[in-house]
């Protein structure tokens, strides 16, 4: 008897949760469906048509020719920027003199909207894979670098003294004290950089290449292949959502302690 009640209760709770998750998305899709079939606009496509086109267009060799290389580029550039940015950031963060010297120049570079580097790098490196990687690195590195500097700079002095007292130095000092203390800021930098990396990947391809995701989407748009264009937009969205979800998973793991500290501080 109690088992039945409990099962009913769990099922009910599950149903409520599902409703919370899917009610609005389903409503929005229905609204879109209704609107796109009712409106005479040439540019609107029904969700059904987009889904069908999506399967047709992207579940083909296109996935290997256009999508995978683009994502690969993005991740390569992003990883390079992450390594370079944190390394440089730690070096600058530890030396107040070097930091003071470099900061105005770095702040200026950070303030340059990264997309303007596209035409520049096209001039300098030409239109090829290294150019795209260089572009992503040069756009992504600034938030990572500046946040790392900020994080390293704000290492707690008491904790630093503790390390000195107990003779913690060298590699262990770097990994247990400096990098871990700075990790909340480093992750914040990496998060901003991820968004910039996606933007740069797409527009570098839209601008001047003959392959890749950005190129394909612009091609569809220029040839007025509207359902195909929509499917490309959806794919970009999915890539963005996937990368961001992965990032959150990593971040949650890395910053578990930080969230714990914060929660403890709030409860006080």
């Amino acid at each position: 008897m109690t088992l039945v009640i409990r099962t009913v209760r769990i099922t009910r709770r599950g149903a409520v949760r599902l409703t919370q998750l899917f009610l609005l998305p389903v409503l929005l899709i229905l609204l879109w469906w209704w609107y796109s079939s009712a409106s005479a606009s040439y540019y609107m496509t029904t969700p059904g048509e987009i889904a069908a086109t999506f399967v047709e267009v992207w579940f083909s060799e296109r996935f290997f020719v256009d999508v995978l290389p683009s994502v690969g580029l993005l991740l390569t550039g992003y990883a390079l920027a992450a390594v370079l940015g944190t390394t440089l950031g730690v070096v600058l963060g530890l030396s107040s003199r070097m930091r003071a010297t470099a900061e105005p120049v770095l702040e200026f570079f950070r303030a340059i909207p990264p997309p303007v580097l596209v035409p520049l790098l096209m001039l300098l490196v030409g239109v090829n894979t290294p150019m795209k990687v260089a572009l992503i690195v040069s756009g992504c590195i600034w938030p990572i670098l500046l946040n790392t500097i900020e994080g390293v700079r704000s290492v707690d002095p008491v904790l630093a003294d503790t390390c000195r007292c107990y003779g913690v130095r060298g590699r262990r000092w770097l990994t247990t004290l400096v990098l871990r203390s700075a990790s909340p800021q480093i992750m914040a930098g990496l998060r901003q950089a991820l968004a910039i990396a996606i933007i740069l990947m797409v527009i570098s391809e839209m601008f001047a290449t003959t392959s890749g995701l950005g190129f394909s989407i612009v091609q569809f748009q220029r040839s007025f292949a509207i359902p195909e264009m929509w499917s490309g937009i959806v794919l970009l969205g999915l890539i963005g959502v996937t990368l961001s979800t992965l990032f959150v998973q990593v971040e949650r793991r890395v910053l578990r302690w930080y969230d714990g500290v914060r929660a403890a501080a709030r409860d006080e």
């Binding site: 998750l21 609005l24 929005l28 996606i198 264009m229 959502v241």
Partner: peptide
């Protein structure tokens, strides 16, 4: 808040550059 959460979490990470072709058309 609870009913919009999933939608927000889906829409937010969509890179806005994805909208470029649409913007050009519109």
């Amino acid at each position: 808040r609870t009913f919009t959460a999933s939608t927000v979490e889906f829409l937010r990470p969509i890179p806005s550059v994805a909208l470029i072709p649409l913007a050009i058309l519109l």
